[in-house]
Amino acid sequence: MNANTVPACRAADYRSEVKPIWCPGCGDYHVLMAFTRAFVALGVRPEQVAVVSGIGCSSRIPAYTNCYGFHGVHGRALAVATGLKIVRPDLTVVVASGDGDGYSIGGNHFLHACRRNVDLTYVVMDNHIYGMTKGQPSPTTEPDFDTALTPGGTGLRPFHPLVIALASGANFVARAFSGNPAETAAIIVEAIRHPGFSFVEVLSPCVTYRPDQRAWKDRVHRAPVDATDDAARAARRVMTDDGFNLGVLYRGSRPAYAPRHDTAVTDSAELEREFEL
């Protein structure tokens, strides 16, 4: 069987037999569904996709797919994915993260992944809470949200990932809601197709530690205006919107990172010339 006759895959072909550890009703089930639907729409074979993650509820996604997966350590998924994509530009590399993994412990890599603009798609499932460690505040948690670790709330202003992505040079910025898997899948498809670093923030409720987020489904709405190619305008919009504005918000045109390759030398013995006395 050659590549031309490989039958098209169905969404189920991208799922593994592993049963998710997520709580019933978790938004991440729908993100997983959106991933598989996006891969179907792209027509990319499971073995040509790598799903890379760190640690947290969201980061369990790789093992639930039938793609190549990498479940690394906390906060470093973007670094792993960067090395992989530079070495294997032929692969579709999708990075899955959450608001703790991606914005707190992995915050520095987020800035530099945006700036470096490697052709990756970064999907962050944001539920404003650490779920796997049972309910501590993340960088996007509201300041007055009471937790055992921060009685009375953190008192800290939440982090604004979309503005940071825009300021740092992300080439594609979108917001999605896990409760709309078809729309989320469509956004992920566009994010993967867009060259360079694409950032998709997915509002994905935690029904266990943030039951209040069940109300998100009534608050989300489609962005009233089309995406812009002006990062400053996009940043102004996301800073002043209500946080539930969905859709593609910014499409940039920076060329994706490409390592310089120069195959001038066929024999590594030539490299030693500079040392000869």
Binding site: A81, G83, N108
Partner: peptide, 13 residues
Amino acid sequence: LASINMIIGGSYG
């Protein structure tokens, strides 16, 4: 932290 994770990604590939 990034450099070692990047080479882990490269080697995985």
